[in-house]
Nucleic acid binder design. Structure first.
Lengths: 340, 340
DNA sequence: ACCCCTACAACAATCGATTGCAGATTCTAT
DNA sequence: ATAGAATCTGCAATCGATTGTTGTAGGGGT
């Protein structure tokens, strides 16, 4: 608004500005950085000149020189499910919180949605020289590949499951416990025939399923049935509808692998006139904001996403500083609402 | 898996690899780039050596040199609503599609969530030297600031409204027409007292409201009431609940500014025992995937998000190539489902 | 008047890769 | 055997900023 005076001839680098100001490039650099090493008058004169010409130092050059990029890679590996979309609400919820925490600390975000075809996909990212650190959202089916890199590349934190003796620093909930909580909730309602809806190949969902089995056997119930559901949102709805159609009263409790799956399941059940939770009870997993905004409100297992995102960023900064942040395992929490 | 042989001493740059291979740095560079200028044997030998030592050229240096970064900035300006979160499902839906299109073309994504406090927020981004182009998601209340930059910086495309004579290249739907479609749908159902739920300061929502007014006056109905709703998801639900509580039967049709608002509205109405669409009809705006996964399925105005994202990326590439891609205005489309 | 110290600015090396140009080697043809 | 062409490879400049070191001018103390 107030500022105008279009730049006469555009200044492209520090050297040109230096010539214009009648000083050397080094002095301009220090002046723009606000260093006291350069005389207050010259400093302000140079800063004014830079402002007037709309000049800003090239960040690529600066970062190459200082060997610090202030960029964090946020990487979503889509190994088990290539068609899964970045718009998966869980990614987005956690990404939002990561973005908040990172931008507050002056870091930029490089977003990568990677399909791990070549086996050096993670190497390519961490060795690109473009990043000060990496946050991985989910382990997909790439646990070993991640482990390889974690052994030598420190500034990396992974959202996912923690296995004993792992080199990678993970943040996440105890998925197995979460699965058990869901199972116990369903069983307490009187459900006797449980099913699990989700993709068992992904390590996190697999553990949730195992937790559900724990709960079932503890109650002396038959082994829950795992029903496969792709994570790609376009086919998910049909798949779930097909599963639901095949129930025929054999199932009275469903633990969904995620809130998104739960939401689609409730939708599919309603389409067939099945009452939730009266006929079939349903639990979700994640506790997305969505879960309490829809009808009916989802009973679900909270992953404490906001807290987890903060923990990831905190751990990453410690590791960038050279310290050795440990993994974090959060306690999942049953949020009882309307579906179970 | 198969590859192992841990790198003996880590190679940090091309020069070290060159020494190891007994050639010059230039040759290594050409060899790794797969140029035929270097002998096939040496080329393969060097590539094998690089693979063995897990060496990858520093991208920062490369990009500085070739003056091309292969990074596109995706920027979300949060001017009118600083508390709005990146996890807004609309951002995320479009971001997902942008990410797909950009990664397919070999570009990386730098994600920025910007609160435009300093008036040079956009300059700082486009002049950083880190980006080959910029995609802006939403104009927020920064139309003029964007216009300023668009006059001199070509490779930028904006999701939002197109005003005649604008320098910025925009992609978006005709929001006013969309608003009118929503209004006409409600009126056709027999609604007589319309309300608009949304933040009128944002240019897009304002036009949707205007379109709703168009429909109302064309039908000889009173001016619809604009009811303010923050876009921050944590307060939105309460605000909407408060509006709904104040209706007392004075409103029978609601055009929501977005699907998210519509969803929360339906939820709030259900909580008060108000039947949708029987007592009050509701339309959304966006047509997120969500809209047909929830109960009840949302009647909404489609923004053709996927198509829009492709158009943005297409236009951006043309502009990067130096051509002069025009703005795109898409036709909004009424998607009739269960809420109106 | 002389010396020393401080404050400031210029010089030049550096970050790590790319690439135009020139020099060197090998090969072919005469 | 030798000119000439063809094919490689090395040298050095370049991208644009940062920063340790060196040099110089001015001021103050004796």
């Amino acid at each position: 608004m107030t500022q105008s005076s279009p730049p006469p001839g555009r200044i492209r680098n520090i050297a040109e500005l230096a010539r214009l100001a009648g000083v050397s490039a080094g002095t301009v650099s220090r002046a723009l950085a606000g260093k006291t090493l350069v005389n207050k008058d010259t400093r302000e004169r140079i800063q004014a000149l830079a402002r007037e010409h709309g000049f800003r130092p090239n960040q690529m050059a600066r970062r190459l020189r200082v060997q610090e990029t202030r960029v964090i890679g946020v990487v979503v590996p889509l190994g088990h499910e290539q068609r899964q979309h970045l718009s998966d609400p869980f990614f987005m919820a956690i990404l939002g919180h990561l973005a908040d925490a990172l931008t507050e600390n002056g870091y930029d975000i490089m977003l990568s949605r990677v399909i791990p075809d070549a086996d050096d996909w993670l190497e390519r990212i961490v060795d690109s020289g473009m990043l000060d650190g990496v946050l991985l959202i989910g382990q997909s089916n790439q646990y070993d590949a991640i482990e390889q890199v974690a052994k030598r590349y420190r500034p990396m934190v992974v959202w996912g499951s923690n296995r004993p003796g792992a080199a990678q620093c993970t943040v996440g909930v105890d998925n197995r416990l979460g699965g058990r909580l869901a199972g116990e909730c369903l069983i307490a309602r009187g459900c006797r025939n449980l099913a699990f809806l989700g993709e068992i190949d992904a390590i996190e969902l697999n553990e949730r399923f195992l937790g559900l089995c724990d709960a079932a056997s503890a109650a002396g119930l038959p082994q829950p049935k795992p029903l496969h559901v792709h994570l790609a949102s376009d086919v998910m709805a049909e798949e779930i509808a097909a599963h639901v159609a095949a129930f025929n009263g054999t199932i009275d409790g469903i633990a969904a692998g995620s809130d998104l799956i739960a939401m689609n399941t409730v939708r599919a059940l309603a389409d067939r006139g099945i009452v939730v939770p009266g006929d079939i009870a349903v639990t979700g997993f994640d506790d997305l904001p969505l879960a309490e905004q829809i009808i009916p409100r989802l009973t679900t297992i909270s992953q404490h996403i906001a807290e987890g995102a903060r923990a990831m960023v905190g751990a990453l900064f410690e590791r960038i500083a050279g310290e050795d942040a440990p993994s974090v395992v959060m306690r999942p929490e049953l949020i009882r609402r309307d579906t179970a």
